Computed example of a mutant assay.
Amino acid sequence: MIVDYKYHIASLVAVFLALGIGILIGSTLLGNTTLVESQKQVTNNLESQLEALRKTNEDVTARSNALQLDANINKQYEDQTLPLLVDGRLADKTFAVIELNGSGFPPEITEVIEDAGGTVSSVTSINDFYDEPKALNVLREELELWPDLSDDEYLGKLGTEIAVGVIDGEKDSIVNSLVDKKILQFTGEFGIPVDGVIIIGGGYKPEARNMQIDLALIDYFKELNIQVVGVEETDVSFSLMKEYQRKHISTIDDIDSAPGRLAMVLVLGGQPGNYGIKPTAQKLLPDMQKQEVK
């Protein structure tokens, strides 16, 4: 965090003005030499402090500029080396991506998969309508399905229906209704056989959202022996890594960073585990293994 001393300097200047007025009044009205000398000494001390603050501010600014330069260099280095590190590691593999964090889909995920030789067959985004009870009640009334289920059970059924659509490619009336209501959006094509599914979790709202759709998706794909990886960004307000790990799937908690995307490729390539920078991670990255020469 950059320290800004402008307010300290302004305060000291105000003190100088007050002292100057005090010296003038004191010398005019009282003629007290001791008082005037004392005020001058305080003023000199404040001048020294002001100069020290100016010097510190200059040093902080210079350090900030140097750190920004280092960050830019590191970013360029990551952008240029990451494609080389992942090259060929996901050759001829296909993946589906499902986004549940309600904050949009990070395009870097598909980019790194493609850099690794893989293909993303579909990207599905499900908004967080279910955190609004009124919206969920309206949906239940309109779909007229499963009236005896609790809200959690109902969301679990919806999650399973979405998973079936992703894998089978049959967008039944339920999935079509979710698309029509903009609860579900997707690009690409459903029904293409996949080697793995990436679920983007976490969230930026103050409180954690209902996880029943996440859990139903994970359960369905695991029943089909399809690899599932749960990922989230570094600065989410609430993390779902621990809950995902209870389902015994691999997790990456810093997918917005180059190490996180490298970890995801290595996991999808056959090195399961929990990686990232948060307390729920085992370590930053899987062990880098030399690729077989084809």
Rank of each mutant, 00 (worst) to 15 (best):
D148A: 15
Q41D: 04
M264N: 00
I23H: 00
K283H: 13
I21L: 12
I2T: 11
S11P: 08
Q282M: 11
I192N: 11
L155R: 02
R140H: 07
T43M: 14
V60P: 00
G88P: 04
S27F: 06
E292A: 15
G165P: 03
N44S: 12
K93N: 07
I73L: 14
L149H: 12
L85C: 07
R140S: 06
L136Y: 00
A10N: 14
V42G: 01
A135V: 00
T234R: 08
K290M: 14
T119S: 12
L155C: 06
G260A: 02
T81W: 11
E108T: 14
F190A: 02
L12C: 07
D253M: 07
F95Q: 02
L136F: 04
E78I: 07
D152Y: 06
L46S: 08
V42P: 04
M211E: 15
S48V: 10
L29A: 10
T33P: 00
N72F: 12
A281K: 07
S177T: 12
D214L: 12
V179H: 05
H8W: 13
E144S: 14
N57L: 10
V3H: 04
L217N: 04
T280M: 14
E99Q: 13
I183C: 02
G118D: 06
N57P: 03
F238H: 06
Y275G: 01
L145Q: 02
D70M: 13
K205L: 10
K247F: 09
D214M: 12
R140G: 03
E292N: 15
Y275E: 03
K181S: 09
A281D: 09
L29C: 06
K93M: 12
K290R: 14
N101T: 09
V179N: 03
P193H: 08
Y220R: 11
E233W: 08
K40C: 01
T61M: 11
D180R: 14
D115S: 14
I183T: 05
N74L: 14
Q185N: 13
G88E: 08
S64C: 03
L19M: 10
G188L: 02
D151G: 07
V15L: 13
F190V: 02
E144T: 13
V175N: 00
D79E: 15
I73C: 08
T34D: 08
G260C: 03
T110G: 14
K247Q: 14
P206V: 01
D235K: 13
N57I: 05
V236F: 03
V267D: 04
V228F: 04
D115Q: 15
S177F: 12
A96K: 02
Q80A: 14
I277T: 11
L24R: 09
A216I: 07
D219I: 11
G22T: 13
T119P: 03
L46P: 08
S150A: 11
K222A: 05
I226G: 04
P259Q: 05
A14L: 11
S125W: 01
D256H: 06
G273I: 09
R54Q: 15
D148W: 09
L240H: 13
L85T: 05
L155K: 04
K157F: 09
F95H: 03
K134T: 15
I73D: 06
I174D: 01
L217M: 12
L184V: 02
F190M: 06
A116M: 05
V138C: 06
P107T: 15
Q41Y: 03
P133D: 10
G104R: 10
R89F: 07
I126P: 01
T124Q: 00
K247L: 10
G270L: 05
L35W: 08
